[in-house]
Write a protein that binds this DNA or RNA. Sequence first.
DNA 1: GATGAAACACTACCGGT
DNA 2: ACCGGTAGTGTTTCATC
Lengths: 161, 161
Amino acid sequence: MKDGELDRVDRHILYYLQQDARGTSSSEIAEKLDLSASTVRTRINKLEERGVIRGYHLDIDYDLAGYPLYTKIICTAPIPERDELANEARQIRGVTAVREIMTGERNVYVNTIGRDHDDLNRISEDLDALGLEIVDEQIIRDEYVCPYHGFLDEDGIDGEE
Amino acid sequence: MKDGELDRVDRHILYYLQQDARGTSSSEIAEKLDLSASTVRTRINKLEERGVIRGYHLDIDYDLAGYPLYTKIICTAPIPERDELANEARQIRGVTAVREIMTGERNVYVNTIGRDHDDLNRISEDLDALGLEIVDEQIIRDEYVCPYHGFLDEDGIDGEE
DNA sequence: GATGAAACACTACCGGT
DNA sequence: ACCGGTAGTGTTTCATC
């Protein structure tokens, strides 16, 4: 129950769920670990409660879904307001991700989708209206999310429970 | 079956799965749409086959998971090799996402996690060894993935509750 | 914590409309 | 394209160790 400590079982669960978060059942994971399905299930619940698992997201090909314009808008926010502005940016329609950067001028990254330039202009205007200064805008060609393989074979360090 | 066309049912399915890709069942979605569960199920399968749904990802709080260093490494790749280099970068341990940008000097973004600076140095070296020139490196403070609400109320879709 | 059992819910697969 | 039935599988809950 220690705060940030994940044991071997937890890490394996994260590893397998990373591959296919919807299609991988507790029983499947249990089989690989030689555990019972209910044990894996309660572990998953605990990982959710502790906040280690924040959610299960859909990976959509927005291009195929009818939104060919995928862009990254780079903004500057005053540090005291950065957190609040980033949060408000999430509510804007067409915003698919927001990243806050610790330091520097380019400290808020906003990913957006749109069908046409009107969509993008509207989003830019909305960001600007919030008080986010837009410093750059780039077209994203492709994006890949990668599983972290270290969850599986990092077992040099462990031994705790 | 048209290529990029999603109808009202498809968009609703995407919308609900965006909220909780693992916990939302076909039957739940079917209920909201007044359809049978099997209809929703075959729709989901088709969306997967067509590639609109690319996968189901786990959203991990890497800080809680024991990886307090979350960074964004910005690289330059020669356009002819950009695609291949971006692909190879995905294989490096600690890389959680890769984004290819269409134009400009800052045309490959790599998100990474690490436990300490040694991890980060190793990743930087690996990227460099591939042939990616590192132009900037920033610490990510926080990241949020946002559902696209337009799937629900795009064009005069009916009532909801 | 981990486990097994029973009730319940979801999925895959079938044919039918 | 949508629906319903069924068999198999996953999940929830509870009692036990």
